[in-house]
């Protein structure tokens, strides 16, 4: 079991512990923050703030915990493509369902309220 750090065989980036520690600290603070801001009513801003904080937290995890910052670009492209498709899917589904919502019968659910 080799314990020494051999640069020639080394594949992948080694992340320093202080950096990992800094990231987890930031994640904790952001978690507290996202709960804290729900105490304030900012109308429709609330969900954007909550999601914004989640995106920052996610980015920290992806970039540092998941090594993407030092990884081959193709892996990042894979991630971004999948996220783009998620947005595409959500975007069209929201656009359409909002547009036909007025045609729906409010509260229609005969098996729930017969």
């Amino acid at each position: 079991m080799a314990t020494e750090h051999n640069h020639h065989d080394q594949v992948g980036h080694v992340v320093p512990v202080p950096l990992l520690g800094g990231v987890i600290a930031a994640l904790m603070i952001l978690t507290w923050l996202t709960v804290f801001v729900t105490k304030f009513d900012l109308g429709s801003l609330n969900i954007f703030i909550a999601l914004g904080i989640a995106v920052i937290k996610g980015a920290l995890v992806v970039l540092f915990f998941m090594h993407l910052r030092w990884d081959a670009p193709i892996n990042g492209i894979v991630l971004i493509s999948s996220l783009l498709l998620v947005f595409l899917f959500i975007g069209f589904a929201l656009m359409d369902s909002a547009a036909y919502a007025p045609d729906q019968i409010p509260g229609y659910a005969p098996r729930i309220n017969p």
Partner: peptide
């Protein structure tokens, strides 16, 4: 993402 979407709703 699940946490704010499910628990922190306004």
């Amino acid at each position: 993402f699940l946490f704010p979407l499910l628990y922190l709703i306004h």
